[in-house]
């Protein structure tokens, strides 16, 4: 059990972030909180990729003379730069749409009555 947690432990924050994000998305009527949940879930996935890059006893992937320690895998970091840009753009588009919603209807709360379906 201890060994298992020690080996998988770093993945727990990833799972917690994604689950927390999904919980917010699924349970909240306030669309701003939904967007926050979405952002949290996306951050969790970014954390997952960053964890994939880690190797035991390795150091930052910058080549230096006379340093032959193993390096962490730099590729997931590069991928996540792109994913962060995508997440930020999603957030930006979402906030812009929420502003229009607020202007048009005076509220950003999701309605549950069927006659108000979009």
């Amino acid at each position: 059990m201890i060994d298992y947690l020690f080996a998988r432990g770093p993945y727990l924050p990833y799972a917690a972030l994604v689950m927390l994000g999904l919980y917010l998305v699924l349970t909240h009527q306030n669309l701003f909180k939904t967007i926050v949940g979405l952002s949290l879930a996306q951050s969790g996935i970014i954390l997952f990729f960053v964890l994939l890059a880690v190797r035991d006893g390795a150091t930052v992937p910058i080549l230096a003379e006379g340093d032959d320690r193993p390096l962490n895998n730099p590729l997931p970091h590069a991928l996540m730069l792109t994913a962060i840009v995508v997440a930020v753009s999603t957030l930006g588009v979402a906030l812009a749409i929420l502003r229009r919603l607020q202007e048009e209807e005076g509220s950003i709360v999701e309605r549950r009555r069927p006659e108000e379906e979009p």
Partner: peptide, 21 residues
Amino acid sequence: APRAAVRYLVIGSLGASLYLL
């Protein structure tokens, strides 16, 4: 439209996140 777009965005982004995972 904004309401439909937010719904599309939330569900669609979850889809894209699942794909990325």
